[in-house]
Amino acid sequence: MKVEEKLALNKFEIDKEVHITVDESKCRECNMTVCVYTCPADCYVLRDQHITFSYEGCLECGSCRIACDKGAIKWVNPRGGFGISYQFG
């Protein structure tokens, strides 16, 4: 089962305001791709040597925030009530 299929089962209230911003200029100097592997929701994808990012499926675990040591990731929580809402947890 693919991650995107799993994420489709979850309940999200997606905010128009983006809660994670990625400074791609810093990503260009980094070949670690640690964000790609540490994100359990595949929010970071390596395409043609570029990191592309989407915040919609974010499970708000904070792994990428800890993993990126280039300071490329700016992380705040989604505004109250937005983001993931676990039905089971």
């Binding site: 089962m1 991650v3 799993k6 994420l7 089962l9 979850n10 359990p40 929701a41 499970l59 675990c61 904070g62 792994s63 800890i66 993931i84 676990y86 039905q87 089971f88 947890g89």
Partner: peptide, 9 residues
């Protein structure tokens, strides 16, 4: 049947 996928630190 999978009904939810979650992650945490």
């Amino acid at each position: 049947k999978t009904v939810e996928y979650s992650a945490h630190l």
